[in-house]
């Protein structure tokens, strides 16, 4: 599968995750979000950027439980809860946000 962004073809796996993380940029993220029927707000970007930083540091996409706790610690309790995160990413904050962030499917996401 592939995603067309600005005339370029970006390879994805059958579930829509990027094959090559280095091809990610904000335009690619927006294109994935469109395919997911999501309009990216500042709150969406905050989570997506958080995930990218987490991946850079630990080389994994965090499980949803870990993501929720870490967001709460960094951005406050009103954001570190599953209600808030599921409102932003209805198909699962870890799975859907990771996809938009150009990361692999989260490890330990059941």
């Amino acid at each position: 599968m592939a995603l067309e962004v600005g005339g370029k073809s970006i390879a994805t796996d059958e579930e829509g995750y990027l094959e090559n993380r280095d091809e990610w940029d904000m335009e690619v993220a927006k294109a994935i979000a469109v395919a997911e029927n999501l309009e990216m707000s500042d709150n969406h970007w905050e989570v997506v950027n958080f995930l990218r930083e987490y991946y850079d540091e630990y080389q994994i996409a965090p499980a949803v439980r870990v993501l929720t706790k870490a967001i709460g610690k960094k951005l406050g309790k009103d954001k570190g809860n599953s209600k808030y995160l599921y409102e932003l990413f209805p198909y699962g904050p870890a799975k859907q946000a990771c996809k938009i962030a150009g990361l692999p499917k989260p490890t330990g996401c059941v």
Binding site: E57, Y58, Q59, I60, P62, A63, V66, K69, A70, G108
Partner: peptide, 14 residues
């Protein structure tokens, strides 16, 4: 190869 040693530092989060 993928360097997975940074991932050990995430164990505390888990």
């Amino acid at each position: 190869m993928k360097n997975f040693s940074p991932t050990y530092k995430a164990l505390g989060d888990y």
